[in-house]
C-alpha cells in the first residue's frame, strides 16, 4: 500500500466554527457589558462573587447532568436525590454523627439512587426520561416520609464551613465547585472513561460492538450525577443551616438549561463541560442582572425560557451551516 508518511493539515477556520467555539463567550461578554452599563452595582467584586456563589449549586448539579446528557440520557431526579441525601445528612448530623462520615453517607445515598437510575436504564432498557422521572417522585416521596414534612435546622459549625466558610477571599462553595469542575474536565478530556462517554452517546450500538462495557459506563454516569446532586445538597443546607423537605424542587430544570445553553447536544456525543460552566454563569448572571434592574420574578421566568430557546435556535443554525 501507499508508503508516504501521512500529511496532516488543519481544517479551515470558518465563521461558523468560530461561532460554535466562542459564540457563547461572546454572548456572555455582551450580557456583562450591557448589565454593567445599566447598573453600576453589577461589576463590583461583591456582586461577581455573589453570582459565582449562586451558580455553584446549580453548577455542580449541571456537571453531573452534562455527563448524563453526553450519553444521550437525561436525569430528572437530581432535585429529589439532592433532597433525600440532604435531609438524611442533616438528621445524622443532628444526632451527632461525625461530619466526615455524614458527608460520605450523603454521597453514598446519591450514588445509590444514581445506580438505581443507571440499572433501570442500562439493564432494564427503560428510557432515561421515564426511569429518572420515577426516581424524581420516589425520591421526593421518601424525603417527605423521612422528614414527616418538618425541616431539620441548626447544623454543627464544622459542617456549615463547606457552605459559609472561605479560603482566603474565596467562599468554600466556589472552591469546591471549581475543584470538581477541573477534575471532571480532566476525566472527560484525558481519560478512557471520558472518551467512552462520548462514544456511547454518539452510537451506543457501535460502542458495544467495539468492546465497550456500555451498561457499566451508563450506571457509572448516573451514579456520578447522583453524587453531584448530593454534594450540591450538602453545600446548600450548610449555607441555609436548614434542610427543608421541599429543597431542590425544580433543580433539574436549571441544570438541564445550563447544559443545553452550554451547547451540549441532547442527542449525545457532543458538548463540553466548559460550555456547561458558561451556560450556568450566563443563566445566573441573567437572574442577577434582572434582580439588580428590579425586573419582577415572573418576568425573569419568561426571559430565562426565551434565552434557552434562542440558544437552541442559535446552535441549530450553526450546525446547519457547518455541515
Amino acid at each position: 500500500m501507499a508508503s508516504s508518511a501521512p500529511q496532516f493539515h488543519s481544517t479551515p477556520f470558518t465563521l461558523s466554527i468560530f461561532l460554535k467555539r466562542f459564540g457563547l463567550l461572546l454572548v456572555y461578554a455582551l450580557l456583562g457589558l450591557g448589565l454593567s452599563l445599566l447598573s453600576d452595582r453589577f461589576l463590583t467584586g461583591a456582586n461577581q462573587i455573589n453570582i459565582l456563589r449562586q451558580a455553584t449549586i446549580s453548577g455542580i448539579v449541571a456537571i453531573g447532568m452534562t455527563l448524563v446528557i453526553l450519553t444521550a440520557g437525561i436525569d430528572l431526579s437530581v432535585g429529589s436525590i439532592l433532597a433525600l441525601s440532604a435531609v438524611i445528612t442533616a438528621d445524622l448530623l443532628k444526632q451527632g454523627m461525625p461530619v466526615v462520615l455524614a458527608i460520605l453517607i450523603a454521597l453514598g445515598v446519591g450514588a445509590l439512587m444514581g445506580m438505581v437510575n443507571g440499572l433501570m436504564i442500562a439493564r432494564g432498557k427503560i428510557p432515561p426520561f421515564i426511569a429518572t422521572l420515577g426516581m424524581l417522585t420516589v425520591g421526593r416521596g421518601l424525603t417527605l416520609m423521612y422528614t414527616q414534612g418538618k425541616p431539620f435546622t441548626g447544623l454543627p459549625d464544622t459542617f456549615r464551613f463547606i457552605g459559609t466558610g472561605s479560603i482566603g477571599a474565596i467562599p468554600m462553595p466556589i472552591v469546591i465547585a471549581a475543584a470538581l469542575f477541573i477534575f471532571v474536565t480532566v476525566v472527560l478530556t484525558r481519560t478512557r472513561f471520558g472518551e467512552y462517554i462520548y462514544l456511547i452517546g454518539d452510537n451506543p450500538l457501535a460502542a458495544r460492538l467495539a468492546g465497550i462495557n456500555t451498561n457499566r459506563m451508563i450506571v457509572f454516569v448516573y451514579m456520578i450525577s447522583g453524587m453531584c446532586s448530593a454534594l450540591a445538597g450538602l453545600i446548600l443546607i450548610a449555607r441555609l443551616d436548614s434542610a427543608q423537605p421541599v429543597i431542590g424542587v425544580g433543580y433539574e430544570f436549571s441544570a438541564i438549561a445550563a447544559v443545553v445553553v452550554g451547547g451540549t447536544s441532547f442527542s449525545g456525543g457532543e458538548g463540553t463541560l466548559f460550555g456547561t460552566l458558561l451556560g450556568t454563569l450566563l443563566i445566573e448572571t441573567l437572574s442577577n442582572g434582572l434582580n439588580l434592574l428590579n425586573v419582577s420574578q415572573l418576568w425573569e421566568q419568561v426571559i430565562k425560557g426565551v434565552v434557552i430557546a434562542l440558544a437552541l435556535l442559535f446552535y441549530n443554525a450553526i450546525n446547519r451551516s457547518s455541515k
Binding site: R192, N203, L205, A206, I212, G269
Partner: peptide, 28 residues
Amino acid sequence: AQGLFLGQSVRSNASVSLFERLSRFGFL
C-alpha cells in the same frame, strides 16, 4: 449504524479498541 461514531474524530473511531491497552490509571 454499527461500526462508526460518526460525530467523533478519526482518532477516537480508529483507536477505541486500544484504549484499554494504551492507558495508565485510566488516563489515555
